[in-house]
Design a protein around this nucleic acid. Structure first.
Length: 423
RNA sequence: GUGGGCGUAGCUCAGGUGGUUAGAGCGCCAGGUUGUGGUCCUGGAGGCCGCGGGUUCGAGUCCCGUCGCCCACCCCA
């Protein structure tokens, strides 16, 4: 060992390695497949943006924007931030490029938040999600939620519940907030210690407080869903009826107030009952009909959702689901003890023919190479030793079953492999 | 930002009240089987005991600090 300093991944971050990365690969490809089935196309956008994108988008007052963002200056003094969530960048890209609407995009992205790490909570986590801009048709709300529900189902998750609420639009919400404020003002003394002082800053947040004191007060008070305007009410009913029509169960959650300020009308959250109470949200989203304007674009409705990859995998584990999301198996593993470059040519030929192939290196003993072959998970071992070399043949050994072995000529090899691997 | 638990081999962990060459299981490597993995047997490699300081004749063990991991509050994915 040298005395060179060693490094480990920064606090709150992790490396995804080995079998776990196969889970990720499978999850992402499953999501991509579903997103395509719903008419969404992949969008790639920068991991960092002008801080204004996030401040104007998710709200300067919000917990995430005010104290959890990774903000930095680049070498020419631009104020940038690593994205704390996926939606704002997509909407910024939409505003910048004026694509045809409806614009339906899906993404997989890291998201960065400066928080204390905890079970299911990281400073860099990853989300898959979709955004649909250009329509406020309740049908698209239903589609987005349906995609999420179908995705969780395909992952094998069963202990998932959908919570849904409406935030109303600007006017009906602010009227409600005033009403809620008045109600709270007359019950300040009964609020929890923390909120007794700061309730007026953002009365909506009180609905989300889990302290008994606040719950007792707000449960007697006005609920947003009962005070949204007629249009918002109609929209909400259309969404819930649409969900019912396609068999997606939802629970009205009048206290559901999500963390970003851009939400209007439909908001929802999927929670896993397998994850306990602390970090049980596996996905969430909603409608953001003012966001495009707030980012300098024409008024454009939008809705989307994001889902945390780490939490989805944790939820799968918590439900005891052991089915791998991706089988990472090789077709063949080449063992060569001739000491020439036979293996180099052989693996290249087979890869060119479309097989997934790996081999042993460093001219190890046959026993050692066979051990590596076994560990590789390959279906078949191709053994090339002096004996085979002499007669221009190669041994095919079954690594999955009893270990039966058969010799074929090099010219017959591809045909024989094709035959055996298609069984 | 606040509080609790824990840092010993690649991994999971033992190491009473300080005492000399720090252990196990698994994994890895080699051999048993002079050409054959998955079972078995034998052997081997691999540790500044997270880091820094202190107490002591002597610290993996006690004290302080620090960093990291885990968990909870909070917030969220």
């Amino acid at each position: 060992m040298s005395d060179t300093p060693t490094f480990s991944a920064p606090i709150g971050t992790r490396d995804v390695i080995g079998p776990e990365s196969a889970q990720w690969e499978g999850l992402v490809s499953l999501f991509a497949t579903l997103a395509h089935r719903y008419g969404f196309s992949l969008i790639l956008s920068p991991l960092f943006e002008d801080v204004g994108v996030f401040h104007r988008g998710i709200g300067e007052e919000s917990e995430v924007a005010s104290k959890e963002m990774y903000v930095f200056e680049d070498r020419s003094g631009r104020r940038l931030a690593l994205r704390p969530e996926g939606t704002a960048s997509v909407v910024r890209a939409f505003v910048q490029h004026h694509p045809l609407t409806p614009f339906k995009a899906w993404y997989i992205t890291p998201a960065f938040r400066y928080e204390r790490p905890q079970a299911g909570r990281y400073r860099q986590h990853h989300q898959v999600g979709v955004e649909a801009l250009g329509t406020d048709d309740p049908a698209v709300d239903v589609e987005v939620i349906s995609l999420a529900a179908r995705f969780y189902g395909a992952l094998g998750l069963r202990r998932v519940r959908l919570l849904i609420n409406s935030m109303g639009h600007d006017e009906c919400r602010s009227a409600y907030v005033n009403r809620l404020g008045e109600y709270l003002a007359s019950h300040v003394a009964d609020l929890c210690d923390e909120h007794r002082e700061v309730w007026s800053k953002n009365p909506l947040r009180l609905l989300d407080c889990k302290k008994d004191a606040c719950v007792a007060v707000t449960s007697e008070g006005p609920m947003l869903i009962d005070h949204v305007c007629e249009d918002c009410r109609t929209h909400f009913v259309a969404v819930t009826e649409g969900l019912a029509a396609i068999g997606v169960e939802s629970e009205l959650a009048p206290r559901l107030v999500r963390g970003f300020d851009y939400y209007t009308r439909t908001t929802f959250e999927f929670v896993s009952d397998a994850l306990g109470t602390a970090q049980n949200a596996i996905g969430g989203g909603g409608r953001y009909d003012k966001l495009a304007e707030q980012l300098g674009g024409d008024p454009t409705s939008g809705i989307g959702f994001g889902s945390g990859v780490e939490r989805l995998l944790l939820a799968r584990a918590a439900e005891g689901i052991e089915t791998p999301l991706l089988e990472r198996g090789l077709d063949v593993f080449v063992v060569d003890t001739t000491g020439h470059d036979r293996a180099t040519v052989l693996v290249d030929t087979l890869r060119g023919a479309g097989f997934s192939v790996d081999r042993a290196y460093d001219q190890r003993s046959m026993k050692a190479q066979m051990k590596v072959a076994d560990r590789s998970g390959a279906a078949l071992a191709l053994i090339l030793g002096p004996r085979e070399d002499e007669v221009g043949e190669i041994s095919i050994r079954d690594l999955r079953g009893e270990g039966g072995q058969q010799n074929v000529t090099l010219t017959d090899l591809v045909a024989e492999l094709t035959r055996r691997l298609s069984q």
